[in-house]
Simulated assay, not measured.
Amino acid sequence: MKVCDIGNLSGGEVLSRPIMSLDYQELLAEGTILRKEYIEKLSELGIREVYIREEINTEEVVLLKDEIENNFKEKVRTVIEKHTYTHSKELVELSKTADNIIKNLLEEEEVIEKIYDIKERIADIYEHSITICSLAILTSLKMKIPQERIHDIGVACLLHDLGLRYLTINYMNKKLEQLSELELSEYKKHPVYGYSALKNEPWISELGKNIILYHHERLDGSGYPLKATDIPVEARIVNVCDAFDEMICGIGCERIKVHEAIDHLRKNKDILYDGKIIDIFLEFTAVYPAGSYVLTTEGEIAIVLRQNKNLPDKPFIKIIYDNKGETVLQDIVKDLSVYDNIYIERVMENIK
């Protein structure tokens, strides 16, 4: 246990003591995993220090390093916001950004062999666009899509939600069913708005424009705005990556856990989404990202340390509490891939 200044928290830390208000009301319980929004609220309430558990080193594998991702995100934000207010021609710069993301991914060793820790989070449309660009590029590489089409996919991902910039309704962390009929109708037009803004631009291919238009279509015709069923394979790739990241960010839906988003994809294979693409996508997506606290079928509480190659739902875990709720003082690490009878039952929000 250690005392930590609230300004030094980044999210993911675990409280070792409850946080109390001035009138002794419990704000957050011992064992709460701190999210960024919790930290911001605590800071607003004037709380300066908290007690957190000593950090356990985990081996997180990320799509892009933080500094690189932030640079790309700011580039996309600057270009798109300038376009929204001035109809700037500088959107063509995102073509280079897509190529730079492809280049950065390809510089990683065994890029298509790794399992990546993609975590649920609150994200704006710029971070979301960078993430699905990376996910779609990885999926395309594993599918051996030609390089020029991967470029088109990357560009379309960075611009796929351009149409959301023209909306005035609040859609974050809401199910579409919670929107009024008028709001829902407006929200479902955003692929058309994005497509219309780019349809006369010569620097983006027809394939890229169609990906933007089709990125919310579904195989069974339940998507929007066209209710199309004949969807280009490149758009199908983006459909899967976009749906997954929207679910774990709360964009146009309530935010859910990574394993819940994966369950949704599995249940809707060859119904809403291309089953072959889902199988490939899930080969490199960790079901339980490193740093997650989980309950095993043995009744033990553990933290996910790192992933197992080719087994995204069977990571290495470190036992924190035994099945009686007692703190485990020894360093017990289990490789779930060698156990036929031990699985992760669920992800824990709070641990004690």
Rank of each mutant, 00 (worst) to 15 (best):
Tyr38Ile: 13
Pro289Cys: 10
Thr327Asn: 09
Val304Cys: 03
Thr84Met: 14
Val287Ala: 02
Ile320Trp: 09
Thr84Lys: 14
Ile332Tyr: 09
His87Arg: 15
Gly275Pro: 03
Leu265Ala: 05
Tyr187His: 03
Ile332Thr: 07
Tyr24Arg: 14
Asn200Ile: 05
Gly221Glu: 08
Asn104Cys: 12
Glu113Pro: 04
Arg149Ile: 01
Glu26Asp: 04
Cys4Tyr: 11
Arg236Asp: 02
Val304Lys: 04
His151Arg: 03
Leu105Ser: 05
His190Ser: 07
Val304Gly: 07
Arg53Met: 15
Asp263Arg: 13
Lys41Glu: 14
Ile319Gly: 00
Leu162Ala: 06
Leu64Glu: 02
Gly12Phe: 00
Tyr85Ile: 14
Glu201Trp: 02
Ile320Cys: 02
Leu64Tyr: 00
Leu176Val: 12
Gly7Arg: 15
Arg77Cys: 12
Glu44His: 10
Val79Gln: 03
Val111Ser: 05
Ile68Arg: 12
Leu176Ile: 13
Tyr195Ala: 07
Gly275His: 07
Tyr85Ser: 13
Ile101Lys: 01
Tyr171Val: 08
Phe281Gln: 05
Glu54Gly: 09
Ala261Phe: 07
Glu234Gly: 02
Leu311Ala: 13
Gly221Ser: 05
Ala243Gln: 14
Pro146Asn: 13
His190Gln: 10
Lys314Gln: 10
Asn210Ser: 09
Thr84Pro: 07
Lys227Glu: 10
Tyr193Phe: 15
Ser185Met: 13
His259Met: 12
Lys114Gly: 07
Ile56Ala: 06
Ser222Met: 12
Ile319Tyr: 02
Ile248Tyr: 00
Ile271Lys: 10
Val333Ile: 13
Leu329Thr: 11
Ile301Tyr: 01
Pro191Ile: 08
Asp99Leu: 07
Ile262Asn: 08
Ser292Leu: 11
Ala261Trp: 04
Lys324Asp: 14
Ala156Met: 00
Gln25Asn: 14
Gly252Glu: 05
Ala235Phe: 03
Ile169Gln: 00
Leu207Arg: 01
Gly275Tyr: 06
Ala302Val: 06
Ile169Ser: 02
Ile251Glu: 11
Lys82Asn: 15
Glu109Arg: 03
Leu305Gly: 06
Cys241Thr: 06
Ile319Asp: 06
Asp242Thr: 11
Ala290Gln: 05
His151Asp: 01
